[in-house]
Amino acid sequence: MSKNTYFKHEGPWSDANDPLMCSDTGDWRTKRPIVDKDKCIFCGFCQIYCPVQVMEMVGDSHFEADLGFCKGCGICAQECPKQAITMVSEGEFVS
């Protein structure tokens, strides 16, 4: 990682050498993006438009969301030119 070279400390009370804070934003989700591998043409639109930047390349075949942090906004499904992504209610995955 390219470390900043200007300040040792990011601010008077925030130390960038510590591990970064991270919330389980995946918990917020009410709908989950499910990618249809066959429909996906690997254009990457879902990746560039995902605000959280959690759409990850799986090899060079398709994209999948990191569900630990995906907030379930649905932008990826809206922007996919092939309608390869469906937003499925989280209720479906409760066992």
């Binding site: 991270c22 917020w28 690997f42 990746q47 560039i48 605000p51 942090f69 649905g74």
Partner: peptide, 28 residues
């Protein structure tokens, strides 16, 4: 065609995302 062209925008993103994955902005 199974594979389209990867969006050229990805080529502009030459550097790492310096943010942690779960940050407190609203969905969308």
């Amino acid at each position: 065609k199974k594979k389209g062209k990867l969006s050229p925008v990805i080529d502009y993103k030459k550097h790492e995302d310096p943010f942690s994955k779960g940050v407190a902005f609203c969905p969308g």
